[in-house]
Design a protein around this nucleic acid. Structure first.
Lengths: 186, 186
DNA sequence: AGCGTTGGTCAACGCTTGTTGGTCAACCTA
DNA sequence: TAGGTTGACCAACAAGCGTTGACCAACGCT
């Protein structure tokens, strides 16, 4: 095992500050100087450790959706399970919010978001979709609803969307996602 | 009637360039200098006509959703009608895309987006929702699906979402929005 | 023809940004 | 305890930003 270096704490502090700032300010307004200030170090350290701003963002937005194993649960509950999981994942930290914010204004961010959903939601769709050839579009439909709720609730802060309880969101969106993924046709 | 001033053409050119740049670059990266260059005039003219950058954005994102009259059509088709209308509206110009892009990174933009949907989608929900007290949350649910598809299709450019035909989007999303607005419960 | 008003350019300002290189203290190892 | 490696700071850079004010040209009225 590699022994812990003294700089690991600083690295981690920078990453944490970067995640918060990217999540709350977006790519352009999250300045390296502000991130460094939050982390309590000098801006030049950020460059030393991550090369440049884009490198910092890449490191800060490394993410696993950690989708649950689909085979374990009956496929008729996959919609509810997915919505529940994403709600949890979204509220655990601000990495996903940051990714969404950056994905909207930055081409690199958009590509990363594309890749994440293709690689991690795609297989789930493949497992439960009636026609495998249709899996990508089913996944895209499901993603549109999940991302849309995240947008309304965590980014735009539309009041009625924020006030919906966790269970209400699951109850409303679950069947929608279920239908998108498993229905024979529209 | 007020006679056309010489400057109207310039004003319009600035607004058009601003809409394009806000839509494709977001608020921060859409620089006044670039907008002025696109419009073929000096950056200082932008300040003269619109005061400052925020004023320019406010003018460039003045928008009417132009939602169809709800009373005219049977309420069981309101979902499909809404999705159709938004698809049209979104593809007509880039004002909505710009608003979405800016709303995600800019507080002013988010408030504007909130206001637009509350004022213009809210009444529609009030007209068709079984319990008037529930109208705002129903509208928020519908907005989440509509915005989510716009996000996936026009902003993030998720390939399967882009490749969906117009009619397919309507066929899939129509029933969802219909359910959100008119169902008795989840 | 003369003059105020309008539409426009130009050059500069103060500021912030990402980024760099030089310097210094703390640490580990021999 | 000496010396190299590591971690961090500081000051500065060039570029780009929003914004301002002085200046000029064309127009429309009388």
């Amino acid at each position: 095992m590699t022994t812990a270096r003294r700089s690991d704490a600083t690295r981690a502090a920078i990453l944490e500050a970067a995640r918060e700032r990217f999540a709350s300010d977006g790519y352009e307004r999250a300045t390296i100087r502000a991130i460094a200030r939050d982390a309590g170090i000098d801006p030049s350290m950020v460059m030393r450790y991550f090369g440049n701003k884009e490198g910092l963002f890449a490191a800060a937005s490394a993410i696993e959706l950690e989708l649950p194993e689909l085979g374990a649960l009956p496929s008729r509950h996959v919609g509810t399970a997915l919505v529940t999981h994403f709600l949890d994942r979204w509220e655990r930290d601000d990495v996903l919010t940051g990714l969404l914010r950056v994905g909207v204004t930055n081409a690199t961010g958009a590509e990363r978001m594309q890749a994440i959903f293709a690689e991690q939601l795609g297989p789930v769709a493949l497992g439960v979709c009636p026609d495998p050839a249709e899996a990508p579009r089913r996944a895209a439909l499901a993603a549109s609803q999940i991302l849309g709720m995240a947008l309304a609730r965590y980014v735009l802060h539309l009041p009625p969307a924020v006030e919906l309880s966790r269970d209400e969101v699951i109850a409303w969106l679950g069947p929608t996602v279920q239908r998108y993924l498993t229905a024979e046709g529209p």
